[in-house]
Design a protein around this nucleic acid. Structure first.
Lengths: 101, 101
DNA sequence: AACATATTCACCTCTTGGGGTGAATATCAG
DNA sequence: CTGATATTCACCCCAAGAGGTGAATATGTT
């Protein structure tokens, strides 16, 4: 799941979609409008965000409303913070390498 | 840069390499040893980690010593934390969607 | 029924990631 | 010089991401 989450947020278009949804629920078409790419491409990005669990969908008639689920981000933030703590021990090694270069 | 960082840490092999380097400096061969894949593949993963700025290299004779640079993680952590704060406003919308499903 | 809207499905292309192998390069040890 | 070690380079293959177009499906409107 971490893999899917990190892959999902690694793409700038998908990060922009998430930022848009942070302003509130929106339909697929609404999400797609600002982008210079086709509706279809946006639909595929949304599917990847759903696979990562970052976006949930509520179907109402022919309209699909999208909302954010922040929970998968917790795992990602946890991994990053843990690594940052572990790596601080090795900063002297980093400096050795940087000085050499 | 954020793209490269997130792409780099989205792969489990690369996360394992980073975890290995968190225990201290190591040569390419040392890093590669535990993995069931070829030395060449590990070398390519390391190149991606270098492109993301997460790993720096110090060449000493024929040996290449690798060390971590945690700084790119700061930007990633910052983006995630910011989004988590922004998204908390929309949690009621999420519940609406979840209840519907 | 007829038409428009919202979204996806099915296919195509191009690029990139992840894996492999074998050769090249550079360095170290006899 | 010879041989072993460390790493990369130059290819190959396959899967997946990112983009496109056109058709299909489902729903709403008149």
């Amino acid at each position: 799941m971490l893999d899917d989450t990190l892959t999902a947020i690694a793409d700038p278009t998908r990060r922009a979609i998430l930022a848009r949804l942070a302003t509130g629920e929106a339909r697929v078409t609404d999400v797609a409008r600002p982008f210079p790419i086709s509706l279809n491409s946006v639909s595929k990005h949304i599917r990847m965000l759903e696979r990562a669990g970052l976006v949930v969908r509520r179907v109402e008639g022919r309209e699909h409303f999208l909302a954010l689920d922040p929970r998968p981000l917790d795992e990602a933030a946890q991994w990053i913070d843990q690594q940052r703590r572990l790596w601080s021990r090795t900063l002297n090694e980093l400096e050795k390498v940087l000085n050499d270069a």
